[in-house]
Design a protein around this nucleic acid. Structure first.
Lengths: 108, 108
DNA sequence: CAATTTTTTTCCGATAAACAAAAAAACCCG
DNA sequence: CGGGTTTTTTTGTTTATCGGAAAAAAATTG
């Protein structure tokens, strides 16, 4: 085997969708939007670090903003490898769920 | 949080798709069809047991068949709870991947 | 019953998930 | 400058899942 985990897949996709707005707090919100579930920060940053370690994402420090408070943000973006992995995840998902729709579950 | 894992999701779906043909070996083949990846049996049965323990699937022994060799099969089927979980997984996937297509990845 | 086949079980180290709590780094204002 | 407040990130710990190699079981044949 060897497949992205659910969490990895969702975080990669969230970062990709956020484009150049992808830092911890925003990623967390995006994931909430996408799934209706809220990651704890521990869980979130831990997985972000794993993804970084595997070369799927790159991180870089942002400049402090002129807004009240808050330490400098750490931004994430997909590497080539990360984008390829995300694309493969997409294709596998398509193949896995092929032919299934909400109606499929109500055929008794 | 709390989401089905990738493996759980795929196995539930495979069992559902296999209907009344869902025993270990067939499930493994079905997953191979769906994902292009091959589970080891250790991994497979381990996850099937987890799913059973969580009440997502039920197992029952099949009768020995008239074919050469082979011990009796253990069949799996989704419980109500399992079907509901699968359905929820489907909906979350839809929401998560909403608006994404293969072309999305080539927009440079 | 010995040989063969198909299917399932066991076991274990490596990874990943989940969370709570603490720490850092920035800004504001006296 | 220094205390207070805010936003963001880090740390540490426990539990659950993954991934695979190897062994065991149960059935049929001759």
């Amino acid at each position: 085997m060897k497949l992205l985990t659910k969490t990895e897949e969702i975080l990669l996709l969230a970062i990709w969708k956020l484009n150049d707005e992808a830092y911890g707090v925003k990623v967390r919100e995006k994931v909430m939007d996408m799934t209706g579930k809220l990651f704890t920060y521990g869980n979130l940053y831990c997985t972000l670090d794993q993804l970084t370690g595997k070369g799927f994402v790159m991180k870089y420090k942002g400049e402090p903003t002129p807004e009240r408070g808050g330490r400098a943000k750490t931004f994430y973006k997909l590497s080539e490898k990360g984008l390829t992995a995300l694309q493969e995840a997409f294709e596998i998902n398509q193949s896995v769920w092929d032919g299934v729709s909400l109606y499929s579950f109500t055929r008794n």
